[in-house]
Structures are given as structure tokens and as C-alpha cells.
Design a binder for these strands. Sequence first.
DNA 1: GAAAAAAATTGACAAATGTCAATCGAAAGG
DNA 2: CCTTTCGATTGACATTTGTCAATTTTTTTC
Lengths: 192, 192
Amino acid sequence: MFEVFKAYVRRQTTISDEELGILESHAKFKKLRKKQYLLQEGDVCRYHCFIASGLMRTYSVDGKGNEHIIRFATKDWWISDRESLLFGVPSKFNIDAIEESELILFDKDEMKVAMETVPVFGQLVTDILNKSFVINQNRIHEVISSTAEEKYQNFVKRYPDFALRVPQAMIASYLGITPETLSRLRNPKPKK
Amino acid sequence: MFEVFKAYVRRQTTISDEELGILESHAKFKKLRKKQYLLQEGDVCRYHCFIASGLMRTYSVDGKGNEHIIRFATKDWWISDRESLLFGVPSKFNIDAIEESELILFDKDEMKVAMETVPVFGQLVTDILNKSFVINQNRIHEVISSTAEEKYQNFVKRYPDFALRVPQAMIASYLGITPETLSRLRNPKPKK
DNA sequence: GAAAAAAATTGACAAATGTCAATCGAAAGG
DNA sequence: CCTTTCGATTGACATTTGTCAATTTTTTTC
């Protein structure tokens, strides 16, 4: 399973086998079935998680029992609750598997060591953080400036893969609309 | 003006006067009157900007001429268009001064040098990035899961200062609602 | 492949938010 | 001090989106 991670890192940086070995020495592995939790609300997030295969989501559950998905993540993406991880506070979110998934976990402290010991990896992680920031910024922009329909169109364009693999109700949740509204966007009334 | 920046850095890290001197050697200064641009849509953002005083905003203008404010920033905050800065692409956003502002600019490349030469500063900047990520994540969560009223209440609670200094129409724009809707939230119909 | 469960659709209606125009009030400039 | 401009409010109405319940369709499980 670590091969996926190696390939991922090699694709983005120039790194030696020795260095990859160091990273592997800090890694733990985990397999999740559909619907299994990686993190539950109230828990403290301890790991930076790399997805070797599968499909995951991060979401909250509000007072009325409604789920709000803030993020999907799939192969070659990282997932964690950064707020909980960074500040050691209980997470507001749940993370679970939409599809059976294989994960590579790096403990918070070991991650720090790994990033310092293998600077190219540290740089890679910082680059990811920068890109994630930009992606979030753009999502904020979209969500405050677009109609439900535009949001859905953009979602399909940006994440065609998710549009196929994720149940519609979850996409609606990610977009901040109800499943019924999304269904109606997709099946407009015949115009006459 | 650099004193504000020094105080800011000293508050967050242990840093020597020599190191602060190095940082100063990379800094440029800029003063903006109300409504003056720091960055205009289409331009490439070249600087990391620290706000020594004043109040700034980042926003886009859509096809209908409507503004969408994605961020306010004030004293001791950083502002830039990270996407444009990072990737060298034309910015989708405008940045201008809501109030007369004093800025300290660090050119992209010089910033990199500064962060490497003064590691505590580098760490500080990375920490800020991490925190910004978390703030954005929380904003996304809020905007997909809250009503207009909740968003406004949270805004006032989180940024009481902005709530006083920023015109209501801009707050509405930040929240992704119309000024009329915000006005009505604030002045509910007498109930009988 | 039948039964059960989950997901998506649809209808009728309610609630929230947007649009446009008019008015009011405050404050900024000459 | 007056006038002009900008910001905020309000009303009437349109549009979008949500809610709830009933069906239909698809997928899963045995």
C-alpha cells in the first residue's frame, strides 16, 4: 500500500529511496470499510492521513440531525481535521469512508520529525497546504456568489469523478442545498 | 511604521533585533487612501502584504456588477491573493482600502529568502497559513450550514470591530446576501 | 432473482431571500 | 449652512429554495 504513497511523492519531488524509507518508518496503515469512521465528532485528531485508495468525506451533524459535508477526498489526497490536529481540541467533524478505503497515517509529532528530517517532504506538505488554502478561498468565493445551479455545474466540472461516485444527497449536502433542490436542478420541468 | 510589524513578530516569536533588521531590509512600504487599490483584477499579485494600520478588503465583481467580498483584513493581518502570488496568474480579485491604510510589502522572492534566512519568521508565516486554512474551513462550514441570520450573528460575534467599521452593504456582500435582506434581519417587523 | 433497503424523484405548499423602486437620514464637500 | 451623495430602510412583489409526504427507481442483500 505504501507504494501508492511513494509514487505520489516521487511524482511531486525528487526524493531518494533512503528518504522514502524514513517516511515509511513513520507511517501507520489503516483500512476502512464503507461507513467506518476515521474520526468522530468530539475526538481529537492525531493523524495526518494520506488516502492510498477509496473515498472519504468530512462532515458535521447539526442539531436537527442534518449532515453538512465540508469535503470529499480520494486517492492521493490528504485528510484530517486540521483544527483539531493543530490545536489539540475536540473535533467538530466526523470523517468516514464513503467507499472502502486504505489509509496511511502519520502521527502529528512524527509528521513534524519527518518533515524536518526530509526537507523535500516538508516542502511538499507546505505546498499542499498553500494549494488547499487557495482551493478553500475559491470555494468560499463560489458559495457566496453563485446560485445553486451554478454551484452544481461547477462541482461536476471540477470533480467529475465525485459526481459519479458520490450519492446525490451527499453532493447536495456539500453544496449546502437540499437533495430535493438538487434533484429538481437536474430534472427541470418540461418547459411546456 | 515598521515598529508595528516588529511588535507583531515579537509578540508571536522570540526574535533578535538583528533578525528583525534582516526582515526590514526586505520590506517596502505603502500608504493607501480610502478606495485606492492594492491589487486590481487581472493584475498579478507580487507581494505578501502586512497591514500596519487601516482596513482592507478582497472582492470580486461579477457580470452584473455585483461585488462579492471574500475577506476583510485589518491591523496585524496579512493580505494578498495567494493564488495569483503562488502561481503567477492574473488575479480574479480586487484588493482595496476601506479606510486609509499603511502597508508593509514583501516581494514574493524576498519573502522566500527572508523565511529561509530567519527560520522563526518562516515558522510564523507557516503557522499563519495553517490558521488561515482552519478559518476558511470553518467559514465554508458556516456558509453551507447556516441561515442568513445565523451567519450575521456569527459575524458580529467573531468580528465585532468590523461590524462597526464596515458599511452594512459590505457585510451583506461578505455574507453572500443582499443589503436589503441584512437590513431586514437587523430590523425585524414589530411582531403585532 | 425476490425482498428489503437506500436513493432519487415528484407534488403541494411554506418560508426565505432577492429585486426594484421609493424614501429617509446621515454625513461629507463645497 | 446648504446641498449633494451615500447608506440604510421599507414596501410590494417575484423567485428561489426548503419542507414534508408519497412514490418510484435503483441498489443491496440474502
